[in-house]
């Protein structure tokens, strides 16, 4: 995946350089500027990601959001999903283990959904682009909607 991106970027860069050296330099300057602007925020996010993955072992989460945990379990799942930032390639195998070790389906769907759509740790970064009002609105709506997702997925899996 990353290789494709590099090939694509390299190819476009060469094509651009052939057509117009001036525009290419301008593009690279823009690229560098937005890159430099965003790097500190990425560090903050990555720091929080790494610690939330390391400090929340699967069995702790599974014990919190079991099948019998009901709505309280869903609330806990939503809080965990919103606060933590676990990338998909770690989250899904983990979710599988969680379900196998007793986590509820509805709770799991709420967890996965908030994990993807709600980001407390990324909120400052999001707000630097869209402003706080839009950021808070989007995250609040996504948070509430995650319970809808949990309910529908639970029903679908149950039948």
């Amino acid at each position: 995946m990353t290789l494709i991106l590099y090939l694509l970027a390299g190819g476009c860069l060469v094509a651009s350089a052939i057509s117009s050296r001036e525009k290419t330099v301008k593009s690279l300057k823009k690229a560098w500027k937005s890159f430099a602007n965003i790097v500190p925020a990425f560090f903050a996010v990555l720091l929080l990601v790494s610690f939330s993955v390391a400090f929340l072992p699967e069995r702790v989460i599974a014990s919190l959001i079991g099948e019998e945990s009901g709505f309280v379990g869903q609330l806990l799942a939503s809080v965990l999903g919103s606060l933590t930032l676990i990338p998909g390639f770690i989250a899904f195998p983990m979710a599988k283990i969680l379900v196998e070790s007793g986590a509820g389906i509805a709770q799991m769907a709420v967890f996965v959904s908030t994990l993807m759509m709600v980001g407390v740790a990324t909120a400052p970064l999001e707000a630097s682009f869209f402003g706080w009002r839009a950021t808070l609105l989007r995250n609040a709506m996504a948070y509430c909607y995650s319970f809808v997702v949990g309910y529908v997925v639970w029903m679908a899996v149950a039948v």
Partner: peptide, 16 residues
């Protein structure tokens, strides 16, 4: 690893 090509593509898109 992912950022450099993404930002280069964005920069090119933006100017072209």
């Amino acid at each position: 690893g992912i950022l450099p090509p993404v930002f280069i593509l964005l920069g090119l898109f933006d100017t072209w």
